[in-house]
Amino acid sequence: MQEYLSNTENRTWQAFKLGDRKAFEKLLNQYYPVLLNYGQRLIRDNDFAQDCLQDFFIDLWNHRENLDTPQSIKAYLFSSYRRALFKEKTRNFWNRNVIELNEEYEIEVQFNIETYLINNEIEHETLLKLKYYLSTLSKRQREAVYLRFNQELEYEEISQIMSINHHSAINLVYEALKLLRKNWVMSFIICLITIQ
């Protein structure tokens, strides 16, 4: 199944490189929404994320002939778009206080339980503790978890996108999960409440 998928993907990519508009449209339909979702999480400014994504795809089209054929098209698009976003952002801050890139970015990844806790203004002590624990998750942990759970990417792909090594990618997800697990009983109860 996986093999088959990557084969058709590969063919689409090759066709796109040769200037096939249909293939380009196919790539757009498949990746534009997910990339936009990712971009809007990385940058608070939705318009900015969208403008960047448009420019990104236009660039991609204009340079299609010189592109390599990546192992994973999804990972390639995610990492290039991520880079383009940050590059554009630093350029916007050009000549002003330029901050270390890694510190600068934000990520909007909120777990369902967090939202539940916030929305219901929970005052129970143990739940407050859980809310606190969740808030201590780092941006990188959140990003890795998002890429794994929502975008269903392999760790190899995540490491490529976030420019970290394979192990760090796994660690980021596992550490986040351990933190969640510490409170899993509470989570379970909350989920029951939420479902009802």
């Binding site: 990844v109 909120q110 777990f111 369902n112 339980i113 967090e114 939202t115 978890v145 998002y146 759970f149 929502n150 999960l177 969640l180 697990r181 899993w184 989570s187 379970f188 909350i190 989920c191």
Partner: peptide, 10 residues
């Protein structure tokens, strides 16, 4: 299972 449900992303 419960942890999967709890760790869904908004």
């Amino acid at each position: 299972k419960s942890l999967v449900i709890a760790s869904q992303i908004e």
